[in-house]
């Protein structure tokens, strides 16, 4: 801390979060563009992380292990982009705050057969003010849905981009990431203009 990362000659890490319901293709999405096989790391969540002040000294505190998958992409300009898949299960939503902290933006991956699976992710990023795009995964070979019907179903604002992608296809994933950063940039520009 203290010195700005850009003051160093080394790499600067940045992050984009990939969210969506369980089994929607988040790890596939990350793996399609990551330069490493997606890795899995675990965090142990104790009562303390869940907002309980006291850690009981007799060892009765409960511990839960949350797994998250991530990938890495080296970019020019001495940047390294990490992609994090959020844990899919609803009971791990509190972990999302940690993942979203400092993120450039987020992708909400949608499977139109189970559109309700991404409601929690949309709610979370809206409340937190994290810029996000909705990516409709066409992975299952379903017909391409009208984005405006998806917008209506998700009740998201008109400025939130909705794109189609096949989460297995690198250029599709690249296109989604471009959309995230562009959307984030628009947000910064409009905030700067407003202040």
């Amino acid at each position: 801390m203290g010195s700005k990362p850009s003051d160093r000659t080394g790499l600067t890490p940045v992050k984009i979060v990939v969210a969506g319901g369980f089994g929607v293709g988040k790890t596939t999405f990350v793996g399609a563009i990551s330069e490493i096989e997606p890795l899995r790391s675990e965090a142990i969540i104790t009562d303390a992380s869940l907002g309980v002040d006291e850690i009981v000294a007799d060892g009765t505190k409960t511990e839960t292990t949350v797994a998250m998958d991530f990938g890495r992409i080296s970019l020019k300009h001495h940047l390294v982009l990490y992609l994090f898949g959020t844990p899919g299960q609803d009971r791990f939503h509190f972990m999302w705050d940690e993942l979203a902290r400092g993120a450039i933006g987020a992708v909400v991956l949608v499977d139109t057969r189970r559109i309700e699976a991404c409601f929690a992710a949309v709610d979370f990023f809206e409340k937190r003010g994290t810029p996000f795009v909705v990516a409709i995964n066409t992975f299952h070979g379903r017909r391409v849905h009208d984005p405006e019907l998806v917008r209506e179903a998700l009740r998201i604002a008109p400025e939130v981009p909705i794109v189609h992608c096949d989460a297995r296809v690198r250029v599709d994933v690249q296109k989604v990431l471009v959309a995230v950063v562009e959307h984030s940039l628009e947000r910064v520009m409009s905030e700067a203009a407003a202040s």
Partner: peptide
């Protein structure tokens, strides 16, 4: 600062497009 952050985002965007 907004201007620094915008510059960073421009670089990230450029980096992703160049992949």
């Amino acid at each position: 600062a907004d201007s620094d952050y915008a510059e960073l985002l421009h670089k990230v965007l450029d980096g992703i497009k160049a992949l």
